[in-house]
Design a protein around this nucleic acid. Structure first.
Lengths: 337, 337
DNA sequence: TTTATCTACGCAAACGTTTGCAGTCAATTG
DNA sequence: CAATTGACTGCAAACGTTTGCGTAGATAAA
């Protein structure tokens, strides 16, 4: 154990603990001379304040929690980058919790977080989550919450999202203009607002171009890639007329590639694919994948900024602080005519 | 602020704080009846112990810190998955710190961590790091440390690594057997042991097959993808005879693809590429990338297990607990004859 | 009965920090 | 000279939890 604490410094300098504490905080109540002495010794002994004592006393932890479904996903890892960047600049620490899309884990995690461990929370809801009681409970306690991407509308707070309806529309329209007439929609979060928005965009585009909406062409995936590939294979087999796939999540696009390869369906000649994705190597795939790319890094940054600003000003976060960023469509060979 | 604390519970139940605390810990000193009453009220009021008070008193934080260069990298994100998995099972929380391969950030982070914020640390050293004074300082304070992948040999503790020398040899041999005679080696951590091991494997293979070692064919990359692509392009232009690339890091393989595409060099006909990588879509690239794949998830799990075991038993971690896992070579079209 | 043992609970200190308040000493003012 | 001010510093409480020790009452043993 590290026993370099204020008491130790105070003893060695023949000062009181209070003065040492104030000196290290550059309080105006301490003479320049004393400050120097204190700081010199602190540096020499490599003093680092005990975070827990400080947090306990000040009721501030300088820590934020990030609750996300998974980290092995380009969207979330880029978002974490943005979050960590902002947090570090403001001297905040980042606790990471993964739900693995599992509702029970999400509940357990939010329960932990009511313990005052964090000053604020950035969260992207698990796809399985359908009830929000745990989030309401969480909000009832101290920490401020900002949702990003997978938001929860039942909680009155700020959200950072992208223009999902438009993007869903745009993606579908892109496939239609490339000649697709039987477009499947693969998603993973049908019960979350983000999933609904994209789905509505998909439906709106179909309607605008006079194509029927066929519920059987909507596939609900999960976190298991093998299962997803099997589901997609089954769909393509059952409905051989499918000539376009709009994937709402990166992993479903990958599974679609595998399914098409397995069935010998040529991309883009027989099936065109477009997907929400932050895959850096999308352009190097065979064929290069057309993507709707969300500004993941910026989303992380902006969400963290809103959160930290609220924490520092001790003001509640208002829904009016919500932000909607724009995704971008990158046309590549997987949707070529 | 959440004011449901032991005091509150004690008052409502007409018990002392001590008894309430003990009841919640299932202490044998409390009657079954009282335990029930306490737990019932705790559940009703959604009591969650204050983590900071508890940590301060017990000098245990139930938190580990993970210090890695970046998260937007399949190796590290898979490793985090493994770490988080093990930590969660044991009731530990995970603080994430990113160095962005920057030495100064690494120093600042290790300084934070001397403050007793964490019980243990899992670390993969930044490629820039050449001095280890900050790590020695860190080790002098409480927290246990386990290194994984990018290890530091100067610190006496356990490491979880892969068979890097063998893999470097194997990768190079694979290229030679595929017909390459002028093999470039791209790396990012030449001054770290991991980089040296792979490099030695590379050199050993060259020697065994009677090929000369040409220092000009060794390229030291960094964290900037555009710069790396430019460097590789320059190398391929200056040395048009290069017919094989052995990349020590995923991002350098990606940059190699871009460089080759830019120069119109055909993969694998003119240049064959093999890389250390955990890229899930390696098989879907154009052409599919031959990889040496490290068991990233297991590395994370094993490192976390060693760390947590040591923390729980309060025993120091010995270098003899180090683990070497095996990487696997996946042959794909990027190295086809 | 006395003594010992056991059960169930409370008192109070301790963890290391922050901070309101009070105090000391010297310098300044009336 | 007394009174006031201001610059520094110290005392001690507080944050919420854990835990060594003490104790009251009950039961068992002597």
């Amino acid at each position: 154990m590290n026993s370099v604490n204020l008491k130790r410094l105070a003893q060695e300098l023949n000062l009181s603990i209070a003065t040492v504490s104030r000196a290290l905080q550059d309080s105006y109540e301490v003479s320049a001379h004393t400050k120097e002495r204190v700081k010199a010794l602190a540096a020499e002994l490599n003093y680092e304040p005990n975070a827990y004592a400080s947090s306990l006393r000040r009721n501030i932890s300088k820590t934020i929690g990030v609750v996300i479904p998974e980290v092995n996903n380009h969207f979330f890892s880029l978002a974490i980058n943005g979050i960590e960047e902002v947090a570090r600049q403001s001297g905040y620490h980042v606790l990471i919790y993964l739900t693995h899309e599992d509702y029970d884990r999400e509940v357990a995690i939010t329960q932990y977080l009511t313990g005052g461990r964090v000053d604020g929370i950035l969260m992207s809801v698990a796809s399985e989550t359908q009830e929000f009681g745990h989030l309401l409970k969480l909000q009832a306690t101290k920490p401020a919450i900002v949702f990003f991407d997978r938001v929860c509308d039942s909680i009155a707070t700020a959200q950072v999202t992208t223009n999902d309806f438009e993007s869903g529309f745009q993606a579908t329209e892109h496939l239609i203009q490339a000649g697709c007439r039987h477009i499947a929609h693969l998603l993973v979060s049908g019960n979350l607002s983000i999933g609904r928005m994209r789905m509505q965009g998909y439906q709106a585009a179909l309607q605008q171009y006079g194509l029927p909406f066929d519920e059987a062409l909507v596939l609900d995936g999960n976190g298991n890639d093998e299962q997803n590939t099997a589901l997609i294979t089954a769909l393509l087999t059952a409905r051989p007329e499918v000539d376009g796939i709009f994937a709402s999540v990166e992993r479903l696009a990958i599974s679609s590639y595998h399914a098409c390869n397995g069935l010998g369906r040529a991309i883009p000649e027989q099936v065109k694919i477009i997907s929400f994705s932050n895959l850096g190597v999308a352009a190097l795939l065979d064929p290069a994948l057309t993507t709707i790319t969300q500004p993941a890094y910026e989303i992380g940054r902006e969400a963290a900024k809103i959160l930290l600003r609220a924490i520092e000003k001790k003001k509640p976060i208002l829904p009016t602080q919500s932000l909607v960023l724009k995704s971008e469509l990158f046309e590549r060979r997987s949707t070529a005519k």
